[in-house]
């Protein structure tokens, strides 16, 4: 395999890690409340600015920054659930979609108001941008950490969902809310857990985005958020493994599209992403790992 292709695959893996982390939250939240949280990408933006603030103001060690971003992401997710989703439980789905779009616009514009729309550079500790020596391709330490951390977080998520009492309660609530209540499950707590976990992962993706690309701004969550949503749909929305798979496939496809086709097509990368979505849904209407469509009023 040529070094060039290898480099593209590495880049795709890194981008895919971030898409996957955001896509998981879309799927978890959809799975449990049957609503898409369109403000989910903006939580990544908040995570990126949390990292910036923690690094600038306090010069905290990177591990503390990571924990702070996870906590702030979870807190923002819980706040969105309490303010925008809980009051609408039982209302038609469309109301929830529109409300979450409004929350997204609100977060972005508050960000512009407070932080200005000017992109800012995030100064992560210098050792993170050291290239890994002895490889035929250019990979920095931060890139390796992004991929490793994403895998660790996904493994932890899998353990929580499949092996704990809380995870069992979340799966049961996602499948049948009323019967979950008959079992004694506090469904509000299960729903809050899904929002908190999914949003913490999105915040983490925002930190990674800032660490890899160096610049962040209040609108940065919108397009990657939309693409992560596409990844979740490709994987089969509601399925956590599907979201992971969709995230990596989309990251790889996007990078390979830009890297392998003549440069004049590079401007079409977003069109390519959404074109892929249409193609996948034409063949597999429920996504790669999704279940047959269901409707829960």
């Amino acid at each position: 395999m040529s070094d060039y292709l290898l480099q593209q695959l590495a880049n795709g893996l890194i981008l895919g890690s971030m898409y996957a982390l955001v896509a998981i939250g879309f799927s978890m939240i959809y799975g449990i409340v049957r609503l898409i949280n369109f403000a989910h990408g903006d939580i990544a933006m908040i995570g990126a600015f949390t990292a910036l603030a923690a690094l600038m103001a306090a010069d905290l060690p990177i591990i503390v920054v990571v924990l702070a971003v996870l906590l702030v992401g979870a807190a923002v997710g819980l706040a969105i659930e309490a303010v925008a989703f809980r009051p609408l439980r039982g209302a038609p789905q469309v109301n929830g979609f529109i409300t979450s779009l409004a929350v997204s616009v609100l977060i972005q514009n508050t960000g512009i108001l407070v932080l200005t729309a000017e992109p800012r550079s995030v100064a992560f500790p210098a050792f993170l941008s050291q290239p890994i020596a002895g490889l035929p391709i250019t990979v920095d330490l931060v890139d390796v950490l992004i991929v490793v951390l994403a895998i660790v977080l996904m493994a932890a998520l899998g353990a929580i969902v499949n092996r704990t009492r809380l995870g069992m309660a979340m799966r049961a609530t996602a499948e049948n809310l009323d019967v979950a209540r008959l079992m004694g499950i506090n469904v509000n707590r299960a729903i809050m857990a899904a929002f908190a976990i999914g949003s913490a992962l999105a915040g983490m993706a925002g930190l990674m985005w800032g660490a890899r690309y160096g610049q962040i701004d209040p609108m940065m969550g919108f397009l990657p958020g939309l693409k992560a949503f596409v990844a979740a749909v490709i994987g089969g929305v509601g399925s956590i493994p599907g979201a992971m798979l969709g995230g990596y496939l989309l990251g790889l496809a996007e990078v390979l599209f830009v890297g392998l086709l003549p440069p004049e097509y590079a401007g079409f990368r977003d069109a390519f992403v959404f074109g892929t979505l249409i193609l996948v849904l034409l063949v597999l209407p429920n996504g790669l790992l999704g279940r047959a469509a269901e409707d829960r009023a």
């Binding site: 069992m168 799966r171 049961a172 499948e175 049948n176 009323d178 019967v179 209540r181 008959l182 079992m183 004694g184 499950i185 506090n186 469904v187």
Partner: peptide
């Protein structure tokens, strides 16, 4: 009381159409 409290008092409800958790 809410359903999650009532089951704790010793009342179990086996709902119509079985409604087992199919994916569990």
């Amino acid at each position: 009381l809410a359903p999650e409290a009532i089951v704790g008092l010793g009342i179990a409800h086996c709902p119509e159409g079985r409604q087992v958790f199919a994916s569990l």
